[in-house]
């Protein structure tokens, strides 16, 4: 058997919330494969199940049905620490008030590897510095996290995920709250990281046109199905045209952008 090139794979996955009384299935028959070293976007309109999907593949909620494989092992077989060494997150929620500096935030990414007191070793130090250099946040690494801009903080949180040294990084809407320049900067950074580190990066977004231009692959959540393909193929088969199903929005395949009519 040849070595699998996938880091994360779902088969026949149904996602949703199951309580004792009833099951609420939000999306089903999800079959996707995340290849090593690829930048992959996750798009779909609000409420379609993007967040639920991300929560499911990060073990926050269990799948309703189907299986998820992370690095050739069932996701459910990972314990907290083992999972933290394979998969890291960048979330949208605000950080609680604290005195943390940017450097300390990045350093916290080493927790899955440090001892019970969280002592930073030379090895950890190397990973932290590498993450800081790759994301280009050296100049403000000693500032408090509430002293930097949203864009700078977003890069720091990406650096934290890098320091965690996982094969896959999952970002929940990393470009929301940012202006176009910073959106592009962050996405370009993600693209660079996949190329330079060979990590897989999956991020959810509403900026479909930017994703089309920058990503290797896109996963599209629409009403009836979930498809994964290269952006050009998705344009060709009309997937984006059906994304929103709203008479005010049409997808212009020639320029790869949505238009208002």
């Amino acid at each position: 058997m040849h070595k699998q090139n996938y880091i994360l794979k779902t088969s026949n996955l149904s996602i949703g919330y199951a309580s004792k009384k009833e099951k609420t299935v939000i999306a089903s028959s999800i079959n996707i494969q995340l290849e090593k070293g690829k930048l992959i976007a996750l798009v779909g309109k609000n409420g379609i199940g993007k967040s639920t999907f991300l929560k499911t593949i990060t073990q926050i909620i269990p799948p309703v049905e189907g299986t998820i494989f992370l690095d050739e092992k069932l996701l459910s077989q990972y314990d907290g620490k083992a999972l933290a060494q394979k998969l890291s997150l960048v979330l949208t929620e605000q950080l609680p008030p604290s005195n943390l500096t940017i450097y300390e935030i990045v350093a916290l990414g080493r927790q899955p590897y440090t001892n019970w007191l969280g002592t930073i070793t030379e090895e950890d130090q190397k990973h932290i510095e590498n993450a800081i250099n790759l994301t280009g946040i050296e100049t403000y690494q000693h500032k408090k996290h509430y002293e930097v801009s949203d864009g700078q903080l977003q890069k720091a949180l990406i650096a934290r995920a890098l320091a965690q040294d996982t094969s896959i990084i999952i970002l929940d809407e990393p470009t929301t709250h940012l202006d176009l320049v910073h959106k592009v900067t962050v996405l370009k950074l993600l693209q660079k990281l996949t190329h330079e580190t060979g990590k897989t990066i999956l991020y959810s977004t509403h900026d479909v046109d930017l994703a089309i231009q920058l990503c290797d692959e896109i996963i599209v959540f629409s009403e009836n199905k979930v498809v994964q393909d290269q952006p050009c193929n998705l344009i060709a088969d009309g997937t984006f045209a059906n994304l929103f199903q709203n008479e005010n929005i049409v997808f212009d395949a020639t320029i790869g952008k949505f238009k208002i009519v």
């Binding site: 990060t58 926050i60 907290g80 620490k81 083992a82 999972l83 933290a84 060494q85 998969l87 890291s88 997150l89 979330l91 929620e93 605000q94 950080l95 609680p96 604290s98 943390l100 935030i105 916290l108 990414g109 927790q111 899955p112 440090t114 019970w116 007191l117 969280g118 965690q164």
Partner: peptide
């Protein structure tokens, strides 16, 4: 003293703390 490390992780919030392996 035993929970110093998880306390530091909690500075990032509950979800981040869990994502870096804190119970």
């Amino acid at each position: 003293v035993w929970v110093i490390k998880p306390l530091n992780a909690l500075l990032l919030g509950e979800k981040y703390a869990q994502s870096i392996g804190i119970n």
